[in-house]
Design a protein around this nucleic acid. Structure first.
Lengths: 271, 271
DNA sequence: CAAATAGTGTCTCTAAGACAATATCAC
DNA sequence: GTGATATTGTCTTAGAGACACTATTTG
């Protein structure tokens, strides 16, 4: 009977064919639009970061930032590294949303993708010169599903509109998958990845876990509410929102002044 | 400027080193224990399927069923195939729970594992001769975490007890990871995989998505309640449980008779 | 004062939890 | 009848949603 050492040295992983492994990041930001009047609060828009592909396949189409797993790192570390390499922003939080491994999903060969959601604050985007690069843009996100299971993902940036069509499919455990009907200018199966990422983001926002990372350390409750409403695509009465988040935030002594109306108290996340 | 066809043929995925990819399945079952008296209802126990390893590394230790991803299949298909090969049971439902890709997690080399939860009904286990194999056993599951973040996973089968110790770690988005302190007879990082699988199972059971698959097509509400209580490790008042699941089930005209007490109506899952 | 947002108080309604009471069978 | 579970009814309470009201600033 051979010892463990002997066995390990004789073990050949190379006997098996192996896939390439990537991590892709759906990075979301909430962007405050220009206000109509000096005293009105700004509107919010949910945006996602896309990179224009410079190479085949899908050259000149838009894709999520990401790249190949390297030896010595975890998949999550890969996602963080690739994202940072392409954007110069280190995301504070990242969450896995799914594995995409259909054999035909990438024309280059057998490549399985691990998708992550990440949240970037508008603050940190403004600090880097990310808006300069023509091949990396923050697209505004519109995603809605009809009762028949047909979903439309519409991404806008200036005069570019990407419009993907997907079909909603219920799987076991009350989960939803998306199958692409029309790519609409998005590379690979990234339209489906974005749809799942958005669903994951929304389900996190429900219990107020995802919303704080969109904002700076100190924020007004109205700003927090706007974030929540932008993600969930619903509106809430201020009185009720305040009551519901009261357990997750704590007061500071600071206020925002000079806005043409009553100053708002700044809050911090609890813990 | 080269065409897409030219580009693809020249593209060498073999330039990158690639990991081996596996899928592992945490398959849970709920087992009815022998009743004390003829008229008492049986007790339930949550069990998980483990395989005793015949090879190094971790020879004679216990591991989750699973195996290597093959070309032409998705990771989910791999999980289903491997599970079926080892057990002769085709699970009705399967759910991803996480990716385990720490570079040192497997002494054989660079292997990343995709973990799935699956639920098996006691009915389907009894139909196969699964209990015969000495190297595949259903272990009863006990998992609890103290306030200090120290968790104990205790798996029992007859005179074998596996006792793993883990540390709970909060990550972003309100998620929890488990780091292994003591393997306690489990191979690789499978103790951590089981801990995460169990957490996933519990969070699914909360909204009554996971509990039906443990039972046959027709079941009594008391049986359904026992399943819920076994998974969540809490007890509920029957009146309240019935009210809460009333939207998920529909009556049949059948009853269970001859149990030494009032017959119980059989229900089906709605839809 | 007007415009706009910040912030509080309270009513209603629903749903979860607790508990009591009744129903029905096997022996 | 006894022992056991099945099933229903209702009281209480916590929390979500709706709405009315007050507070505070800038121009």
């Amino acid at each position: 009977m051979d010892s463990e050492k002997e066995f390990l040295s004789g073990y050949k992983l190379s006997d098996y064919e192996r896939p390439s492994v990537t991590a892709d990041v759906a990075a979301f930001m909430i962007c405050t639009e220009n206000r109509e009047s000096y005293r009105k609060n700004p509107e919010n828009k949910l945006r996602i970061l896309l990179i224009r592909r410079g190479n085949h396949p899908f050259r000149d189409m838009w894709a999520l930032p990401g790249g190949f797993l390297q030896k010595g790192e975890t998949v999550e570390e890969c996602a963080l590294r690739e994202f940072q390499e392409e954007t110069d922003v280190r995301p504070v939080s990242i969450m896995p949303v799914g594995v995409f491994s259909e054999p035909e999903r990438d024309p280059r060969g057998w490549i399985i993708s691990h998708a992550y959601v990440s949240i970037i604050s508008e603050e940190s985007v403004k600090q880097t010169g990310m808006d300069d690069a023509a091949d990396a843009q923050w697209f505004s996100v519109n995603f809605s599903c009809g009762a028949d299971g047909a979903c439309h993902l519409i991404l806008d940036y200036e005069n570019t509109e990407l419009h993907a069509v997907l079909t909603e499919e219920k799987t076991s455990f009350g989960r939803t998958k998306y199958r692409i009907t029309e790519r609409g200018g998005l590379a690979f199966d990234h339209a489906a990845i974005i749809a799942e990422a958005l669903s994951a983001l929304r389900s996190e926002a429900k219990n107020y876990d995802a919303i704080f990372d969109f904002l700076p350390e100190k924020f007004t409750l109205t700003a927090l509410q706007k974030v929540q409403e932008t993600i969930m695509n619903v509106s809430v009465l201020p009185a009720n929102f305040r009551r519901m988040v009261s357990g997750y935030v704590e007061e500071t002594d600071e206020f925002v002044r000079g806005e043409g109306h009553r100053p708002a108290r700044l809050y911090k996340r609890k813990q």
